[in-house]
């Protein structure tokens, strides 16, 4: 996989369904979701978002994530040439019932947010020994 040429994904703006009350534009973070034996992991790319600017909330079985970029870094900058738009990030997912909503952890490193959604004990993988 690491051998191929890396291409840019165009940023997608958040659709009006999840419209925000503030006038700035939000973008959809590229996301990987995968399942391990006892957790569901959601990994989101949010370049430019510092640790204290991420909100993760759960409401009505929906997980919503919002990441706000640091705009003060751009103070005094005048654009000369641009290839990508700048904005905050937002995305939400309906949670499957197997997830223990009280037991979710989040980690942010180098602009990559990893959410670990632990499964409820009854839905964890169990190995059955053959007698």
């Amino acid at each position: 996989m690491a051998g191929q040429e890396l291409e840019v994904q165009q940023k997608k703006e958040v659709s009006s369904q999840q419209e925000k009350t503030i006038p700035a534009r939000f973008y959809v973070p590229a996301t990987d979701i995968f399942e391990t034996g006892d957790a569901l992991k959601i990994v989101m790319e949010m370049a430019g978002v510092p640790k204290d600017a991420v909100d993760v909330k759960i409401e009505n079985e929906v997980l919503s994530v919002e990441g706000r970029i640091e705009t003060t870094n751009y103070n005094g900058f005048e654009p000369l040439y641009t290839e990508y738009p700048i904005g905050h990030y937002a995305r939400s997912f309906s949670l499957p019932w197997q997830v223990d909503q009280q037991n979710i952890t989040a980690e942010l490193e180098d602009g990559v947010l990893t959410l670990t959604l632990n499964k409820k004990p009854e839905s964890k993988l169990r190995r059955i020994a053959i007698q």
């Binding site: 191929q4 890396l6 590229a30 996301t31 990987d32 979701i33 995968f34 399942e35």
Partner: peptide
């Protein structure tokens, strides 16, 4: 098991 894959890799 991979459910969704949007992140890309490469040189």
């Amino acid at each position: 098991s991979l459910h969704r894959r949007e992140r890309t890799t490469g040189r």
